[in-house]
C-alpha cells in the first residue's frame, strides 16, 4: 500500500503546523520589515523631494537676487560714468579757464615786458639820437647841441601861446618866483643867464631860477613853475618813432600769438 492514511493525516497536521510556524517566523516579520523599509524609503524620497523644492525655491531666489544685484551694478556703473563725464567736463572747463587766465597773465606780462622794453629802447634811442644829433649839430654847425637846444627853447618861449604864457606866469607867481630849470646836461653860466633873462621877459618880473641837471632825463630843457611846466626835448621828435616801433612790435606779436 503506497498510501498510509495515518501518515497522510499526520502530514496534513505537520503541514498546517508548518504554515502557522512560517507565518509567525517568516512571512509576517519579513513582510513587515520590507514594508517598513519601503515606508522609510518613501519618507526619504518625500523628504528629498521637499528639500529639492526648497532648494529650487532658494535657487530661484538667489538667481533673482543676482539679477537684482546685476541691475543695481549696471545702474551704479551708468551713474558713475555720468558723474565721471560731468567731472571731466568740469575739469576741462576749469583747465580751459586756467589756460585762458594763464594766457591773459602771460599776455599781460608780455605787454608789460614790451612796455618796459620800449621804455628802455626809447631811452636808449633818445640817448643815441641825442648823441648822434649832438655830434651832427656839432659837426655840421660847429655849435654845441645844448646851445642849439637852448636856442630852440628860447624860440619856443618867445612864440608861446598867450594862454600858456598866462598860465606859466600865474604859476610862477604862486610859486613865489621859484622856477626849476632841469636839463640833461650841465648848463654853462652864459646859457643860464640867457634863460633867466628870457624867463623874466616872459613873466615880466624877477624870478629866482634854480638849475638842475638830470642825466636820466631825455635831452632837452624843462622849466617848471609850481604846477606848470614848459618843456622841449628830443622826446618830441622821438615820440613818433616810438609809436611807429610800438605799432610794428604789436603787429609782430599778434602774428606770433596767432
Amino acid at each position: 500500500m503506497l498510501v498510509d492514511w495515518f501518515t497522510v493525516a499526520a502530514q496534513v497536521v505537520n503541514f498546517l503546523i508548518l504554515v502557522a510556524l512560517l507565518k509567525r517566523f517568516l512571512y509576517r516579520p519579513i513582510i513587515e520589515a520590507m514594508d517598513a523599509r519601503e515606508a522609510r524609503i518613501a519618507a526619504r524620497l518625500a523628504e528629498a523631494e521637499k528639500n529639492r523644492k526648497a532648494a529650487e525655491t532658494e535657487h530661484a531666489a538667489v538667481l533673482q537676487e543676482r539679477r537684482d544685484l546685476e541691475d543695481r551694478r549696471q545702474e551704479l556703473l551708468a551713474q558713475a560714468e555720468k558723474e565721471v563725464e560731468a567731472h571731466k567736463q568740469d575739469l576741462i572747463g576749469k583747465l580751459h579757464r586756467e589756460i585762458e587766465d594763464l594766457r591773459a597773465r602771460w599776455n599781460a606780462a608780455l605787454a608789460r615786458e614790451r612796455d618796459l622794453f620800449f621804455q628802455d629802447l626809447r631811452r636808449r634811442l633818445v640817448a643815441q639820437v641825442a648823441a648822434v644829433s649832438r655830434r651832427a649839430f656839432r659837426d655840421l654847425a660847429g655849435l654845441d647841441l645844448e646851445q642849439r637846444l637852448l636856442e630852440v627853447f628860447l624860440q619856443r618861449l618867445t612864440n608861446l601861446e598867450a594862454a600858456a604864457r598866462i598860465e606859466f606866469v600865474d604859476a610862477a607867481k604862486e610859486a613865489g618866483g621859484n622856477v626849476l630849470i632841469t636839463t640833461a646836461f650841465e648848463m654853462p653860466a652864459a646859457m643860464q643867464t640867457r634863460i633867466t633873462q628870457a624867463l623874466q621877459e616872459l613873466a615880466g618880473e624877477t624870478l629866482t631860477p634854480r638849475f638842475e641837471s638830470n642825466p636820466e632825463a631825455a635831452s632837452g630843457i624843462e622849466v617848471k613853475a609850481g604846477g606848470c611846466k614848459i618843456a622841449w626835448s628830443l622826446d618830441n621828435f622821438l615820440q613818433g618813432l616810438e609809436e611807429a616801433l610800438a605799432a610794428a612790435f604789436a603787429e609782430s606779436d599778434g602774428r606770433r600769438l596767432a
Binding site: L18, L21, L22, F25, L26, P29
Partner: peptide
C-alpha cells in the same frame, strides 16, 4: 518532515530575530 520543518522554522526564527528595516 519534522526535520525539514525544524530546519525551516529554525532558519526563519534565527533570521527574523534580527531583522533590519534600514538599508
Amino acid at each position: 518532515t519534522w526535520l525539514v520543518m525544524a530546519l525551516l522554522t529554525l532558519v526563519s526564527w534565527l533570521v527574523s530575530r534580527r531583522l533590519s528595516s534600514g538599508p
